[in-house]
Design a protein around this nucleic acid. Structure first.
Lengths: 137, 137
DNA sequence: CTGGATCCCAATAGATACTG
DNA sequence: CAGTATCTATTGGGATCCAG
């Protein structure tokens, strides 16, 4: 955390959250881990949008410092690292779900939602997974 | 929409949404309108974090183009403008709520949530306002 | 080969000063 | 009040380099 944390911290809960993932890429990284099950640097690099290497490395560091993810050596092979969501990170699933539901209502692309909610809810407790997906106006 | 729309559009619903409000300020502007009832440029400028004038102008333009807000001349006085959330914009309330709930669980500042949920849910239909706020671990 | 650091350079975001 | 202009800082893409 070289800088900028708390620069915008007004005490508002939304500002607190945006301080952590309020940028172009952080939430996409979290999504790749929560929805696609991405666990390595390489898998994340190959994400749907194509993040570049320096940005990915920087975001992983920030997310780790914020307690959203952990980084460990691969237990099996010793080579390579494994990133995983913490509870704090997994608890962002409802946020991702609400965003996806909102997009489902307003994104003109009818294929965009395909498979998304199934996957993200699959590893969740289900507490807040009241799916009212097909509400396109 | 001069540029950048769809630059990141991978078809993912989260990417679609982040294309619209996935930056440092857009969601804070929406929050100021949804929670604080801010309706004019001046009210938004005086927000909790202090956005600068050019950024505010730019974001208002983008949000209007995205159909999140509308801009009209003040009906009473003719001078000044009034910005208002559209239905599409008001439908982002669940996203704001989930973000606030998440912050409520993890933001160490105990005062941060004060009054937030009351205000944001006040002008909503209540459909998805299942408040399970006090879950701080 | 995987994970990541680094450098270059283009493009964006942002603070401040100023204007209709 | 509601912005625009200008100038600086930060982000991001792409290539390359390097360590385990």
């Amino acid at each position: 955390m070289t800088r900028s944390r708390s620069k915008y911290d007004s005490g508002c809960p939304v500002a607190y959250a945006l301080d952590i993932f309020g940028d172009r890429w952080s939430l996409l990284v979290i999504r790749d881990m929560a929805v696609k099950g991405a666990r390595t640097y390489g898998e994340l690099l190959a994400g749907w949008e194509g993040i570049s290497t320096n940005i990915l490395a920087q975001r992983l560091k920030q997310l780790e410092q914020a307690g959203i993810i952990t980084k460990q050596k691969d237990p099996d092979s010793g080579r390579s690292f494994v990133y995983e969501l913490t509870q704090k990170g997994r608890d962002l699933a409802p946020v991702l779900i609400e965003i996806a539901l909102w997009s489902g209502r307003y994104n003109p692309d009818p294929d965009a939602m395909t498979g998304f909610l199934d996957k993200i809810t699959a590893d969740r407790t289900g507490t807040e997974a009241r799916m009212r997906a097909g509400e396109r106006p």
